[in-house]
Design a protein around this nucleic acid. Sequence first.
DNA 1: CGATTCGTAACTATCAAAGTTACATGAAAC
DNA 2: GTTTCATGTAACTTTGATAGTTACGAATCG
Lengths: 140, 140
Amino acid sequence: MLHILVHMATSRDEAMTSEQLAGFVHTNAVVIRRAFAGLREAGIVASARGHGGGWQLAKAPETISLAEICTALGESLLPFGTEPEAPGCLVEQAVIGALDEFRRDAEKLLAEKLSRVSLADIAATVGPNMHLTGAHSHAS
Amino acid sequence: MLHILVHMATSRDEAMTSEQLAGFVHTNAVVIRRAFAGLREAGIVASARGHGGGWQLAKAPETISLAEICTALGESLLPFGTEPEAPGCLVEQAVIGALDEFRRDAEKLLAEKLSRVSLADIAATVGPNMHLTGAHSHAS
DNA sequence: CGATTCGTAACTATCAAAGTTACATGAAAC
DNA sequence: GTTTCATGTAACTTTGATAGTTACGAATCG
């Protein structure tokens, strides 16, 4: 996903079709549209229908942070959930309490770190000057 | 998983069977054995076969940290991977570079936080005195 | 109008995790 | 020593989430 967004950041002038974006990560156009729906609602990208339409960043890459992207995608920063399996068990309640506290702290920390990195930051580490060499490696 | 380990911490004297442990989280005994294999290799729990056998913590709950448990289970602290999908693409390499850096920092941070919490810490927040009331809620 | 492209629903395919069954191995009780 | 209980593990089935596919409607431009 980031891969695609950075590609869009490196060629902001022209809109790209779902088909093209899908090609970057060897997936399907519909998958791209589904995933980008959240980003559009969050005001990160914009889409245009019809001839000459496609996707573009909705604002400057400098103002798009990774934290923003994660939130828009509705993804958790931590790989575990804390839904009770045996409601009423005091042991489980204690575990969930400890885990939720950890989760709160950890998510704040990670979000803070991610909010410091923008699409432009990553784009700046591409190459240098890859946009001049055309070395995208996305043959067709 | 933590739920089970804390139960074991609150009744260290007696070994518990896979069947009993599975009951705590409404799952299957074989699933428990599979999951606990890693913990046993890490020296966190010990198992005994035969009559009167079962599972026990291999050391004091005060000395078992959540970080240790995560490592033993082979679980990542972050919910994303960074395998290349379009090898050779400079954009992707830049993205992976940025993500790997973030991952390294984040995992260190999280592991550090988790290493400060022990099974005993969580067990101490159960109740108070739940072992006197019998309020496990694990009916049978 | 016709070509293009998004939006979305409905269905199928894929894959990893959990659950199940079966049986061998080891340990205690009688 | 035989029975009983429990782990260890392989093999298979089930389940659920995600990706992929197909189809078609809506919007936009030439």
